[in-house]
Each structure stands twice: as structure tokens, then as C-alpha cells.
């Protein structure tokens, strides 16, 4: 199989990898570039790619990462990079999101440890003026 050259901008730095077309972005990020994704790698060509390591600033956590730590949103941690990035992208587009909207926004990311409440608490805590808010029902 012929490898493709894929140029992308990873956490602000240009880089290029050679990869077979069927590999996912997750595989090249994790195995080749040390970072993670379900998108086929060639689709990322020319794109800006931000991973959870690109959110903070060196030894300082991004406020969303900090909220996950301080609100107890992290147990085994396996789902956390996906959760944080989903929340990051969602809050960038919906800076005044309600708790119910946050609950819907993370519905595509599975977590088996936390029961989601503390993850939603963490995300809600960085919405200005919202705090952890009132508990919600399923589907709400």
C-alpha cells in the first residue's frame, strides 16, 4: 500500500507524517506523534489539530482541565481527553451553555466510571455565572 504524506498543524506546530490511508488520526497521533481520534488520518491534511496536551500552557492546566481535576470528574481517566476536548469545542461555540445542553453535548462520549455527574459539574463550573447548577433528569 502506498503511504500518503499528511501535513497538519498539531497543537500549533506544523508537522508531517507518512501513513497508509486507512490509519486513523488516533493511530498516527498516538503511535507516531505521541498524542489521540476516530477520523481517518488523511482527512486531517492541512487541518489544525488540537489535542488535550495542546490546551494547557506547559505546566499550567487549561481552566477546563483544572475543573475536571478539582471537581472529581476524573476516575480511570481513559475517556477524559475526549470529554475535555468535546467540552472545549462545545463551550467555544456555546459559551453560556446550560447544564442540559452540556449533558447533550457529551452524549457521544462514553464514561463507565463517573456516572457523568461530576464531568457535567466540571464543565458547568467554567461557564461564567453558572457553577455546578441544579441536578438534572435523564434526557434533560
Amino acid at each position: 500500500m502506498t503511504d500518503l504524506a499528511v501535513a497538519l498543524i498539531l497543537n500549533g506546530r506544523p508537522c508531517e507524517v507518512r501513513t497508509p490511508a486507512h490509519r486513523t488520526l488516533l493511530e498516527i497521533l498516538r503511535d507516531d506523534l505521541g498524542a489521540s481520534c476516530l477520523v481517518l488520518a488523511p482527512r486531517a491534511a492541512g487541518c489544525q489539530v488540537t489535542t488535550v496536551r495542546g490546551l494547557g500552557d506547559g505546566d499550567r492546566l487549561h481552566p477546563l482541565q483544572e475543573a475536571f481535576v478539582t471537581q472529581g470528574g476524573i476516575q480511570c481517566g481513559f475517556c477524559i481527553p475526549g470529554m475535555i476536548l468535546t467540552a472545549y469545542a462545545f463551550l467555544r461555540d456555546h459559551p453560556a451553555a446550560s447544564r442540559a445542553e452540556i449533558r447533550r453535548a457529551i452524549a457521544g462520549n462514553l464514561c463507565r466510571c463517573t456516572g457523568y455527574t461530576k464531568i457535567i459539574d466540571a464543565i458547568a463550573s467554567v461557564v461564567p455565572g453558572r457553577g455546578a447548577g441544579e441536578p438534572g433528569a435523564a434526557g434533560g
Binding site: 498524542a35 489521540s36 489535542t51 488535550v52 496536551r53 494547557g56 505546566d59 499550567r60 492546566l61 482541565q65 483544572e66 475536571f68 481535576v69 478539582t70 472529581g72 476524573i74 481517566g77 477524559i80 481527553p81 475535555i84
Partner: peptide, 25 residues
């Protein structure tokens, strides 16, 4: 926040592994 001094018994803060997991380290 910079890597924090960790909690005492009653404080609601976990640091040993959560800090690293939040950064995918």
C-alpha cells in the same frame, strides 16, 4: 493552575493521577 500541593485528608481534591490524566500523560 500550577501543579498543586496535594490535599489533606478532608480536602476535596485528587492529584496523584488526575493531574496526569487531564493532560493525557
Amino acid at each position: 493552575m500550577a501543579r498543586p500541593a496535594a490535599p489533606s485528608l478532608r480536602e476535596r481534591l485528587r492529584v496523584v493521577d488526575a493531574w496526569d490524566k487531564a493532560q493525557a500523560r
